[in-house]
Each structure stands twice: as structure tokens, then as C-alpha cells.
Design a protein around this nucleic acid. Structure first.
Lengths: 341, 341
DNA sequence: GAAAATACCTGAATCGATTCAGGTTGATTT
DNA sequence: AAATCAACCTGAATCGATTCAGGTATTTTC
């Protein structure tokens, strides 16, 4: 089989082989019901024989409709986001749409780079879990006919559709749960604060704290990123304090931080979870349940978020005049050992 | 700003605005050193003013070089693979390459779908962690000028380049470690067996078992997939046996299975890890260390695998005559509590 | 000062799928 | 039998970036 067909067959080759015109081949490909069954069959056989594959570049150039969707993710290592992507992918395969994937790692520059790339690629639309404020950038994409849907982030000004979970409510529920189980010296661990969700979860936590009787303050322990490592580092910082300044509960902005905290506390051994200190995370990633001390968490319907976001995106791409809508799911409190001694 | 520019500027618009020909604009974009600095400046200004963005479809159609690479992953939920993807992505951004991402979920059909899609897209190349045997399919891609590199899988026949970890050796090391710590009734948990790595890891395990004195047999506990759920199910099956048939060590084909096993054993509580039963996994995903009982594992240099694979892919895409090479990394034994009471 | 070389530039041709105005054929209506 | 209609087909024009043969100045060489 050496030296096979080095030049891929084009639609013209197919037409020739099937003894029809290129227009007919194109019709077979795109609206087979308008073509006689005889032609359909001949064309399909020719396609088979030549191993013809549509050239997406040519199709895009002319028609302008791409079959890819860009997805810019805040943190591709976070199982929560891989789950969201997975949901989007599931919905995508149903519509013959592939995902062009970009991981920003909480980095503005990378966010820009990926959006540029998606623009060059003229993707059908963009799903984005944004880091900073990118309304301006998205506006520009829209002007170019590229729809965008915010994922895991409420669109404050309502100019874009979004699919998210009520982070404020989630934060409140988490802290209410800690209060219910008798905790009083509660610290919030999270950051950086230009991630919107971090702010929201903290805001929710503060609401709960203010409603407590007596009202109390939430201490804020800032982290540089939402990773296991940063969580562990925060844990070490807490342990370095004099014992009397130790909090009796930690609310981590996501499960990765929570797992990091847990790990550092367990290794140290002086502060027992959950007896002396409770920990609750956010996202309910699959590994939360398998942790050294199974982790309580605020569950987000991650796959559903991905699926819904892609569905809305495709709808908006099909009808650019449609108005933006905000879809907000409710988080669910999952209680495990880390908060219930 | 309502009703801005609905029609994106083309290279012709830029040419007109800059008062040069389209050829010159193209040259500014692609070989600026062959253009007078005066023209370069005028063109760049025009690009700026018009917000011009290259149309990748048109470029691909003519020149045929894409700036995307397809990556077909066995299991996008597995942190090991997200880490590999991350490595590839890191290398990709250095070369201005984006990743078109596809998750097969151990499914032949999806594998095909994604490869079709990548072919339509005329990606620069394809990275693939294959499920079954896809040499034929890859051969076809190659005939179309699309390079392919196997990831996490040694290319047996040497027809394609591959970047992997020596799974046989890893399997042997894992079981040797179990033997060293005095275990004798060792079971291998993994499957399906059309995943090459599963076979290799088992083969390695058997080598170690045969070299033991006296030689011993490895029991095989087959799973339907490599997930936490399947691991937990396997654990339940083990627990259902009469106590005297319980193994004293489990070697799981990957960490997800191992975590699932661990979880089910801990919940049940009758079989203590590591005292009564040791568990070792494979991959050393970040969550292995944070598990209820920190998990011993065979570490793979995941990011490095991704980076290397992409680098090789780009080299091969640049020079299609280059010969395939197999890059094999060595796994590293990471001992944690789950095997060292 | 003529010839040759250099530095830049131009613009038509090209890639392949899609679209659509304009056929052709045969059936149906009047 | 002419007119109308339906079903199906054809093929040139189109999208936008790239390439390259063929320019035109300008400089260098002898």
C-alpha cells in the first residue's frame, strides 16, 4: 500500500466518479432529500470508494458555519471543570460539535490568547468560565457573529447568557451548616478575589455570619490560587499560629483548597478533623468523598451546567437576536464526616 | 456603539486602508522582513483600526497548515489525562497551537467520531491515547498528511511515534514492592483488557510473581472501566467472599480504581488498610496523596508525557519523512501508607 | 553610463464547499 | 397539444488568505 493517495479527494473528484455535478454532491451531503435516491446512492458509493472527507476549512470559508465551539476553562485540572466540559461535550456530540479547549490557569494573558484563537477559527460560539472582566472582549466576538455564554459565573449586567450556580446562596448555606453544628470561629479560605465566585461565596458566608446570634465575623485567609497546594500552604499558615487563635471551622472556596487544608492538618496531627476543626468545601468533586476524612461540600450540578451552557450557546448562535438569559442552579449541601463529628 | 461593524474586515479592506496590495498585507503578516518598514507600519495601523483578524479557514484552505492539534483522550475525568493534556497545552501555547479536545470514554465509536472530525478539520496532527487498535485509522490520517503520536501507549509495530511509560516495568515494580512488604495473596484489579496498559501492567505483575520464591499466581479481578465507581464495585465483590478468600494485597490498574477500592473497604470496615490488605495504584494522581489512607502508586511523569508528545508531533508534522520513535519514560514507585503499615 | 543586481510591490490564480440562477426532463392540467 | 408544474440537475460565482510570475524603482558594479 505504499504511495497511496497522497492527495485527498475533493468534492470534484467525487462528482466525477459518481457522474454528477459538484452541486449535486454538495446537495447529497447537505440536503439529501432534494436529490434522487439514485444519485444519493451513486454519490455515497463514490465517497466511500475515494475515502472522501469534507474539508471543513472550505465549508467554513464559504458558508461561515463552524462545527466547533471554544471552551475557555479557569482551571483544567479541577475535576469540577472537567466535569463541566464533559457535560458540554456530551451535548456537543449530539449536535456534531467538537470542543476546542483552552485552559487559562487563572491567567489573563492566556484568556486573551485563547479568545483570539477562537476568533481566528471562527468558532460557532464560546463557552467561558472567565477569570476577570471580559465583557468588552465578548462584545467584540459577538460583533463578529460569535456567540458567548458564561459558565459558572452569573452575568452581572445581563448582556450575555450565563449558566451558573448561586454562589452567594451556596456560601450562606455552607456557613449556616457550620453554625448549626456549633461552630463559631469560622474562617473563609480562598482567593484570588478577582475570581468572582470567590467573592460571592464569601459574601454569602458573611450574610450567614451576620444573621447568627450573636452575629460574628468571618476571618478571611487569602490564597493565591484555588489549588490543593495553596490549600495546604494555607493550612500550614494556620497551624503556625498560637493555639488559641485557631479557628474551629474552615469554609474553603473550592474542594481543591479544602483537600489541601485537610491534608496539611492531618499530617500535622494537632488539630483533629472534624472534632476540633470542621472543613467544608465547594463543588463536591468526586474525590471529596474519598478524602482522608470525607469532605462535606456544596454540590454543583457540574455536567448539567456544561450541557445547559452548550445548548443555550447553540440556540443563540442559531438566532443572534435572542435575548440573554441567566440560568441559575441551586447548590446542594452534602454533609460528610469533615463537618459532623 | 450600536450597529458597529457587522462584517468583519478582510485582508482586502486592510490593503485598501493601508494603500497597498493584498499581497503586501499578506507579506506583512507572514514575512515582515521582506517588506519595507514603512509598509509594515501602515499595514499594522490599518489592522489595528479595522480590528482585523485573520480568517483561519481561508488560510487553511489555501496553505493547508492548521494551528490546531487534536487530542483524543481515553478518560477526560481522570486527573492523569488532564495532566497530560495540560502538558501538551503548555507546549502548544509556546508554538501558538491550540488543542482540539475529544474524550472517548473508552468507547470505540467516539474514538472514530473524533478522528473523523479531526480529519475534516485538517488539524496539524493528532495526539491519541487509544482505546483499541487504531493503526489502520492513523495510517489513513497520515496518508492525508496528518501526523499522529500515541500517548501513554507504546506503539508495538513501531509505525507511529509514541510517548509512554514502561507499563510492564511499572507492573513489576508495583508487585515487587508488595512482595517486599510481605504480601503473598495478590490480586490485580483492572479492565477492560482491550486497554493495552491494563494488559501490560498485569503482564509486569505476573513477571514479578513468577520471580518470587516460591512463585505465586496473581488473581485477576476484572472491571468494566477504570473509574472510581468500578473500583468500589470490585471492592464490594471482594468483600462478599468468605473471609479466607480475601487477598492481602491489591494492585489496581490505575489510581481511580484504587481509590474506589479503598473507599469501599473503609466503608465496610472489616478489612483494614494497610494492615490486613495493601493497595497500590498507578499514575500517582494528585488525589492519591489526599486519600483516606494515602495511596501508594506508580508515578508517571504526566505533564512531561504531554509536552514531549506534542513536541514530537510538531516535529513530525514539519518533516513527514522523519522516522517514528518510541519515547519511554520510567515509572517511579511512590510509597505511602496504603502499602506500609 | 549601461548593465546587473537589489528591494519592494502588484494582482491574478488558487484552494474546496456551497449556493443559486438557470437548465432539462417528464408528468399533469386544461 | 400547449401550458404549467414538479423534480432534479448543472456549473459559474463566491468566500479570504496565500503565492508567485511579472512588474518598477533604486542602487551597485565595472
Amino acid at each position: 500500500m505504499k504511495g497511496g493517495t497522497p492527495v485527498p479527494a475533493s468534492i470534484r473528484d467525487v462528482a466525477q466518479r459518481a457522474g454528477v455535478s459538484v452541486g449535486t454532491v454538495s446537495n447529497v451531503l447537505n440536503r439529501p432529500d432534494e436529490v434522487s435516491s439514485d444519485s444519493v446512492e451513486r454519490v455515497n458509493r463514490a465517497i466511500e470508494e475515494l475515502g472522501y472527507v469534507r474539508n471543513d476549512a472550505a465549508r467554513k470559508l464559504r458558508g461561515g458555519v463552524s462545527s466547533t465551539v471554544g471552551f475557555v476553562v479557569l482551571d483544567g485540572q479541577n475535576p469540577f471543570y472537567t466535569d463541566v466540559v464533559r457535560g458540554a461535550e456530551d451535548e456537543g456530540t449530539r449536535h456534531n460539535i467538537a470542543i476546542l479547549y483552552g485552559n487559562t490557569d487563572e491567567d489573563h494573558a492566556r484568556e486573551r490568547v485563547y479568545l483570539d484563537l477562537f476568533e481566528e477559527q471562527q468558532v460557532r460560539g464560546v463557552l467561558i468560565a472567565p477569570y476577570g472582566d471580559i465583557t468588552a472582549r465578548l462584545q467584540r466576538l459577538r460583533a463578529r457573529g460569535i456567540a458567548a455564554v458564561l459558565v459558572d459565573r452569573f452575568s452581572g449586567d445581563g448582556r450575555f447568557s450565563s449558566v451558573s450556580v448561586d454562589s452567594v446562596r451556596g456560601g450562606r448555606m455552607a456557613v449556616e451548616h457550620l453554625l448549626d453544628t456549633g461552630r463559631r470561629r469560622i474562617a473563609f479560605v480562598g482567593g484570588p478575589f478577582d475570581i468572582r465566585q470567590v467573592n460571592d461565596r464569601l459574601a454569602g458566608a458573611r450574610v450567614a455570619a451576620e444573621n447568627a446570634s450573636p452575629p460574628l465575623e468571618i476571618e478571611v485567609i487569602a490564597t493565591g490560587a484555588m489549588t490543593v497546594e495553596e490549600g495546604a500552604a494555607a493550612g500550614t499558615r494556620i497551624l503556625a499560629r498560637p493555639r488559641r487563635d485557631w479557628p474551629d471551622a474552615l469554609f474553603a472556596a473550592n474542594d481543591l483548597l479544602a483537600l489541601g487544608l485537610l491534608q496539611s492538618l492531618i499530617v500535622d496531627g494537632r488539630m483533629l478533623v472534624p472534632n476540633e476543626i470542621a472543613i467544608i468545601g465547594f463543588d463536591d468533586i468526586p474525590f471529596a468523598a474519598a478524602a482522608a476524612v470525607p469532605l462535606s461540600s456544596m454540590r454543583q450540578p457540574s455536567r448539567m451546567i456544561g450541557r445547559t451552557a452548550l445548548r443555550i450557546l447553540l440556540e443563540e448562535a442559531a438566532d443572534p437576536t435572542s435575548i440573554a438569559r441567566q440560568t441559575v442552579f441551586q447548590p446542594e449541601l452534602i454533609v460528610r464526616r469533615s463537618t459532623s463529628g
